[in-house]
Design a binder for these strands. Structure first.
Lengths: 265, 265
DNA sequence: ACCGCTCATTTGTCTTGACAAGTAGGTATA
DNA sequence: TATACCTACTTGTCAAGACAAATGAGCGGT
């Protein structure tokens, strides 16, 4: 009303900042007041309030559900990367509960062209296709679409993946170690399919990792795309990867995520 | 039709998809029709059309400017990572024009606590603070906030950074090579300050990289945060990093970015 | 040539209002 | 008791309109 202050800062950003502070002191999974209540409290319209909530949701602080309400999210999990350091290995070392669910496996699927190139397959060649989703503490964090050359695809038993380390299974199958990775990361809007698997609205930004794994001879044995929910994950790299971990104190760092990460099994 | 499956697609998503296809065939830096024209053409309200444009903007396809219009963005640049592979080295090898601009340097600033911990400084200790922004093809891509231990900070000459490789300058200064990195990446809403430097609206998602560089003795000599605009960059990693580059063909990959990337000097 | 002004254009912010669709809990019915 | 339905509640989608703020082009004065 009668803009008392110069509206240099838009209301939806001011409200978002206020809510960010208040949320920081509330426990995860608790319910925020409804949009109408919040709009009334801040003296703004529901449309404007929703703009603020969108900012919070994009930042991973809350999740919103039609018919249920707005829920405060638990802290992000940390995915640590080292060369050839698998999802299973990482999460197991962190002592976090996780689950891998195979959605489908086709031994002779038709791969998209960029996968065919990465696997160095001739035009028209088929490839194995494995689709899976991963959960940490029962929350979906990523979706893998993995493709395999025909020789490997024929012998792959996807049911072996569920409980075990996918890369280790693959290495055992071919009898060689994976020694090289080509990895590209990009933030892009999710496709309809990926959004459905990750339980997101299509167009929501995700972290898409396009990768190729090679054995020592240089031959590619796996290629695909791993799509992470950026509202639930962050990523950590250490170089040189191997032993210098002890030169570092046990990762002092941020301090907000201790509750989720130091959970032990 | 009604709804064959439960897939009822909202109008703003359908419009976004249509515009995505049309934009793919248009040259970068060209102007889109105005919001009112587009809204009229699609037969929707301006509010709904704007929801579609927000999706395109978040995906990095267009940039919008009050008073000017909506402009189609050039393709993303690729930032390639290898251990201790600097921004300057990477972009130079790609033959892309870039510029580093020092915004400020304070030899004795008060660092935030998480920086103090990373540099292993006692409470209350000062640290050098360097703020800079990088441009590629005259477009802002990232903002660095770099902190240095007092002994280094006193001797650092920020004007030496502008034209040269920042890490190399630092190595020359201390007479040691950087051999270890600790690196954490997270997608977060931009702060007011970072948003201003990156010319973004506060709250826009950015890629925040929090890092610490160490010399061989294990001592940290630099720590800070590098914030990338995710609408302008993607990221590429290769492991093992060093020589196997030639085993790979010269990055066949996507195919859309050839125009911008092969610009050479 | 240069500077400052006005003004139409365009996107940014915000309001009120409406209906759709998913959720959860209670109620009626078998 | 168990099932189906009904209903209140909550977020999702969409509309039409209003004013603010930034831009850039045109105009006029110095």
């Amino acid at each position: 009303m009668a803009n008392a202050v110069k509206t240099r800062v838009p209301q939806y950003q001011a409200v978002a900042a206020t809510l960010r502070r208040e949320i920081a002191g509330l426990p995860p999974n608790s319910l925020l007041p409804t949009e109408l209540q919040l709009a009334k409290r801040f003296g703004i319209s529901r449309v404007t309030l929703r703009e603020a909530l969108v900012l919070l949701e994009q930042g991973g602080l809350v999740s919103r559900h039609r018919g249920r309400g707005t829920i405060i999210s638990p802290p992000k999990i940390t995915r640590r990367f080292s060369p050839l350091y698998s999802f299973e290995q990482d999460l197991t070392e962190q002592g976090v509960e996780f689950e891998t669910q195979v959605l489908s496996y086709e031994p002779e699927a038709t791969p998209p062209e960029f996968i065919r190139e990465r696997l160095r397959l001739p035009p028209g060649s088929a490839a194995g296709f494995l689709s899976l989703v991963r959960r940490v503490d029962s929350r979906i964090v990523c979706h893998d679409g993995r493709h395999y050359p025909p020789a490997i695809a024929a012998r792959l038993r996807p049911e072996r993946i569920e409980g075990r380390d996918a890369s280790r299974v693959l290495e055992d199958l071919v009898g060689m170690r994976i020694t090289a990775v080509d990895w590209e990361s990009e933030i892009i809007p999710s496709s309809m399919e990926t959004a459905a698997v990750l339980e997101l609205s299509p167009g929501t930004l995700i972290l898409a990792n396009t990768f190729t794994y090679h054995v020592e001879s240089g031959a590619p044995i796996e290629a695909g795309v791993i799509s992470y929910r950026i509202d639930r994950c962050k990523f950590r790299y250490e170089l040189p990867f191997s032993q210098h971990a002890e030169a570092e104190p046990p990762v002092p760092d941020a301090g907000r995520d201790s509750a989720a990460v130091t959970r032990g099994r």
